[in-house]
Simulated scan of single mutants.
Amino acid sequence: MEQMHADSAAGDAGHDGPTDADPRNQVLQALGERVRQLRARRGLTRRGLAVSAEVSERHLANLEYGTGNVSILVLHQIAQALQCSMAELLGDVTTSSAEWLLIRELLEGRSEDDLRRVRVAAGELLGTAPSGDQHRHSRIALIGLRGAGKSTLAKMLADDLGVPFIELNREIETLAGCSVREIYDLYGVSGYRRYERRALEETVQIYADVVIATPGGIVSDPATFNELLSHCTTVWVRAQPEEHMSRVIAQGDTRPMAANPEAMEDLRRILAGREEFYAKSDHVLDTSGQTLEQSFARLKSLVAT
């Protein structure tokens, strides 16, 4: 910790750092943006990442804004806290083999629609495509941020269809033998993600007909999200950030605003960081400005198609 603070102080006080016109400054800014994107995708506040990585919040802020040099040690700690490789943190995970380089060259510059078709085709080739599971249409999973109404709507849909309702966080707690909060405290984010993947796999194996309410961060782990997309019909339950926050508070949880005055900005950043992943769902249900009855009627029509 002393070395990290020393590095930060040196970066702040030194006069040999890159200027705005220096190409090195662009590298630092690109790195900072990458850290912000990864942090948002994993649903971490800057304070939370700083604590997890054992880096000062001021040092992390300097890194994210591209205003200070950073040591390899600090980058390693941040990569560990974000559950990614150093290569991914630096934005070049595709340099590990000749095949990666050739695949990257084929895909570079392609549209999102082209990339989606390639992903589905690769799934067909590797046996993980959605069409490979005949029960996919009868397993319905609701995804999205907390406060969108996933659990309530999922329970209503399960009752209406006469099938089991599974709240994945409850299954995770059963597997771990403790609460979600205790899982984070004992095993960290990576431990929670391992339980999340196992809970989803077991749910898919046990149930051919089910409605699942998933945790908001399930899209943060590509392997788990691929599993979900392959075996479940997914519905992104979305709402405006203000509605997300107001619904959480209405449920009696005032911690987001009380503990963090920048909670709304963090929420917007998390949503922006995950939006591309949520958008991979089969259907989108926008509950903004809708009554529960209106949202449920729309949900039923979506999954009936």
Score class of each variant (00 low, 15 high):
52 S>F: 03
52 S>T: 14
52 S>R: 15
52 S>Y: 06
53 A>K: 11
55 V>T: 03
56 S>P: 00
57 E>A: 05
57 E>M: 05
58 R>V: 08
60 L>R: 02
61 A>M: 12
61 A>Q: 09
62 N>Q: 09
62 N>T: 06
62 N>H: 02
62 N>G: 14
62 N>W: 00
63 L>H: 06
63 L>C: 04
63 L>E: 05
65 Y>A: 10
66 G>N: 02
66 G>T: 06
67 T>Q: 11
67 T>V: 14
68 G>A: 14
70 V>D: 06
70 V>W: 05
71 S>D: 10
71 S>A: 14
71 S>C: 11
72 I>Q: 12
74 V>Y: 08
74 V>N: 06
74 V>K: 03
74 V>I: 15
75 L>T: 06
75 L>R: 07
76 H>R: 12
76 H>T: 13
78 I>R: 13
78 I>Y: 07
78 I>E: 00
79 A>D: 08
79 A>C: 13
79 A>T: 14
80 Q>D: 14
80 Q>K: 15
82 L>Y: 07
83 Q>G: 08
83 Q>N: 13
83 Q>V: 08
84 C>G: 04
84 C>Y: 00
85 S>Q: 04
86 M>A: 11
86 M>E: 00
86 M>W: 00
87 A>P: 01
87 A>H: 09
87 A>I: 05
88 E>M: 08
88 E>T: 12
88 E>D: 04
88 E>V: 07
89 L>I: 14
90 L>D: 03
90 L>E: 03
91 G>K: 06
91 G>C: 12
92 D>K: 01
93 V>I: 10
93 V>Y: 01
94 T>K: 10
95 T>V: 15
95 T>N: 15
96 S>L: 02
96 S>V: 05
96 S>T: 10
97 S>C: 09
97 S>P: 11
98 A>N: 07
98 A>F: 07
98 A>C: 01
99 E>P: 01
